[in-house]
Structure formats: C-alpha cells, structure tokens
Amino acid sequence: MKPYQQENISASTLYVVPSPIGNLEDITLRALSVLRNVDLIAAEDTRHTGFLLQHFAIKSRLFSLRDYNEQEKLGALLKRLGYGESIALVSDAGTPLINDPGYHLVRRCREAGIVVVPLPGACAAITALSAAGLPSNRFCYEGFLPVKRKARLDCLESLEKESRTLIFYESTHRLLVTLEDMITIFGRLRHIVLARELTKIWESIYGAPLGELLPWIQKDKMRRRGEIVLIVEGYSMPADFMSPKALHTLSLLLFEFPIKKAAALTAKIHGIKKNALYRYALEHQRKHNLVSKFTL
C-alpha cells in the first residue's frame, strides 16, 4: 500500500480504530479515511465520538457500544457484518479494548471468521512509557487497580518482584490511596513517573521515588487532576542479595573453613560479592551465639 492512499474499505470487515487521547491532530489520515467510508461506527460514547466526527466533517452513522451493553449488542453487529457491512470500532480516546469496550466483539468476529483489521494509533499507556525514562524493552500493562483496598494490596503484592516496567491507569480520586499502597508494597525508593493529561493543554510528566512523589502531589491538588498514567520501575535485585542456595552453600562450608575462606568460596560458586557473604556470616554467628573452631 502506498503511503496516505485512501483506505479501500472491505465488506464484512471490522476495523479497530484508535482515536486521539487529547489533541485531535493526533488522529491518523488512515483512521479518518476509515471513519468516512465505513457503513457504521460502533462507539463507546456516541456523543463524544460525534464531536470528533463533527470536527472532521464526517457523517457516518453511529451505533452505541458500551461496557454494559456490549454483550447484548453483539448479535446486531455480527448480523450487519454478515450482511456485508463494514464497521469501525472506536472508544472515547485511545485504542479500543485497552480498558475500553470491544473485546467481546473482536473475539466473536475472530471465532466467526470475520476479518478484523487493526489500525495503529494513540494509546495513553505507550505514550506515557515513551517519555518516562524507564526501561521500555520489557514492560507489562496492568490497567486500573482494584477499587477495594484489600484486593488492590493483593494485586500490588503479586507484582512486587516483577522486573518489567509496570504501567497503570488511575483515577483522580483514588490516586493518593494507590500511591500509599504502592509505598507499602514497593517501598519508598521505587521510582515512579506520573503522566497526567497527555497531549492536552495541562500535560505534565513528573518522576521521583514513591516516597517523594506522594508529598509532591499532596502539595497541589492540580497535580492529581485529569487522566493519569503511572509508570513504575520494575523490581531489581539488591546488589548484596543472597539466594537461599548461596546461603545453604555458605552454611555447609562454614563447617570446614574459616568464615573468610567460606565466604570467598561461596562467592566464587554463586557469582556474588564475598564481602556481603562475610558480613552475613558474622551477623549470623553473633545472633546465634556461635563460636567458630577457626580463628577469624
């Protein structure tokens, strides 16, 4: 396909069309072409999408498809696709299905052999990640955390040792309690980036350790207003971390060698720092009132 040529709309095809997350100029030429030429647009909010269509002078028909009615509307949309109509799926902002309706429709289309064509475009999670300054070669998207605190803490605890960069969405009124819970599970030193109102007039991106970010937000209510993405640094093993296997090796060698020699051999076997092992052995000996048969 040549760049920027008009989209050739196919019959009986579902197009997944991202829409701007703020700045209307972020919509792609291909997305505009699809929206102009499909038979029907299935929209999360017809009023919101109507404003977008009006801005670009697009007069395609709209069909409401929200979280609460997606299951009951599936039959009508699948019937239209079966009759040869083309449909564009859009959400209020960003890429459909990413914390937005559309999953059930896309799944049923795939099961029924109906062609699904995805278009690239805006996504708040990826936009925030690209500017966060945190590792982006490996990341996991977690969406919104549970509303209830117990479930939220359980979810965060399951991610405590996740080494990939973590991406969350959060609402204005839950941001502070979420950050407090993150401090409880991740600790005050874990780095986090708050991306707010991306591509809009009041866009701001600020990063700091969790223990510093929370008071920074508390100083100004405006810092927690709007649509929020949280990018959290993944877990990294402390430099002096000693695995259970390494500690078991150390304990065995301490029966045969002085602490310094046992620590050096264990370090060589497991590829960790001998000084940390030496300090651990000394502390372990003190706590348990052990006396070595060797001279330190």
Rank of each mutant, 00 (worst) to 15 (best):
L74I: 12
S136F: 01
F255P: 05
F255E: 15
A263H: 04
L265N: 01
V291C: 07
V106E: 00
P18Y: 13
S130W: 03
L24Y: 07
V115A: 15
E85H: 10
D92Q: 05
I58C: 02
L78Y: 03
E142N: 05
Y278A: 10
S243L: 14
I9E: 07
D220V: 09
K274Y: 09
V177Q: 14
C123Q: 05
L175C: 15
R286N: 07
M182I: 06
R108A: 14
G50Q: 01
D39W: 02
R196C: 01
K219I: 14
R152Y: 08
R225Q: 07
Q5S: 14
P118D: 13
A125H: 01
L175M: 09
L176G: 08
N99I: 00
E70Y: 15
V90Q: 08
N23Q: 03
I185M: 04
F186T: 05
N8K: 13
Q71L: 09
R152V: 05
P101D: 13
K2D: 15
V177P: 02
S33Q: 09
L179A: 15
C109P: 11
L81T: 12
I272K: 06
E142V: 03
T266K: 00
I205C: 02
M237C: 08
H55W: 05
C140P: 03
G121Q: 02
G113C: 02
R108K: 14
A281F: 00
T266G: 03
T13Q: 01
I21G: 00
R196Q: 08
K287M: 02
F144W: 09
K161P: 02
I114H: 07
D45H: 10
A262V: 13
R30L: 04
K2Y: 14
G102P: 07
L282H: 00
L250Q: 10
L214P: 08
K59L: 15
A31F: 11
R107P: 06
G84I: 08
M237W: 05
P18I: 12
S243E: 06
K260P: 09
V16R: 07
G22F: 08
S91E: 12
L24E: 12
A276T: 09
E162G: 04
A208Y: 11
I21L: 02
E283F: 01
I9T: 12
E197I: 03
L213M: 11
V106Y: 10
G234V: 01
L282G: 03
A262Y: 04
F144L: 11
G75M: 08
P20K: 00
M182L: 12
C140T: 00
E162H: 14
E72N: 04
C109Q: 06
N275I: 08
Y83V: 08
